[in-house]
Amino acid sequence: MIPVSFDYKRANSVSDAISLLQQHGENAKILAGGHSLVPTMKLRLATPETLIDIGGIMELKYIEDKGDYLAIGSGTTHCMVESSDLIQQKAPGLSQAAAQIGDVQVRNRGTIGGVLAHSDPQADYPGVVLALDATIVAQGSGGERTIAASDYFTGLWETALTEGEILTEIRIPTDSANANSCYLKFPQPASRYPYVGCAVAMSASGGSCSDVRVGLSGVGEFAFRDSGVEDSIRGQTLNESSIASASAKAAQGRSVLSDVFVSEEYRRAMAQVYTKRALTQLS
């Protein structure tokens, strides 16, 4: 399978990429690791006229501790996220998600920014960045702006990024909930995409839950924070019955995906099961 012909431009810096985007307009696509875009182009589901390759921009590959938050460059590969001691300590849920994406070869090449910009409903990171209350940083010709993860996912394959903008950084708060976070997934056995991916970040003291954030990937048309579960468990003593009643609320009132492998009913049930396991693991 071979993509339709296109023009290839290599960006040497973020500003270079932004000006190339401006120059080539809406028919241009950003190429990062290429592990979502290239397969889509091979199937000819995407036929951009111009590809702007940001894969070689080293200034987008970093993981830094900024005190209040971890700053992760959008070009950081899943392999770098998975093996970062800093992320393992401050946001273990994120490294657990990275370690479960695809396989070694995919993790060597795919990038966190690419996944978030692509916003596949069945990607792992979206639910995690919601649970970690991350901030997405985007740059365009008008400068830089920040977008809360909770405002970022807007629909199937849709994000709050606007035309001409490039996702440059992901900021993960270094709060106590994120230090006690996890990601559990029910994967499609061949593709490893999550039928259900549940990310939870929780602060607990004296056996009760003081704060909690729950993000679900793979369940709906786009990843979402599950406030039903959060409101049910927040402030409660953490025990089998409080966790069972909170997790029973998973995906409640949400429209849930259905496909040939996993029906809506089964997916909803699995969302509850994985939420229960994640809450139990952090208690």
Binding site: G34, C79, Q105
Partner: peptide, 20 residues
């Protein structure tokens, strides 16, 4: 699978130009 700059990758999902 091939090795590019010390990392294994799937060469059916890379453009040759990305490997300049």
């Amino acid at each position: 699978t091939i090795i590019a700059n010390g990392e294994t990758v799937k060469s059916c999902t890379l453009l040759a130009v990305q490997c300049e």
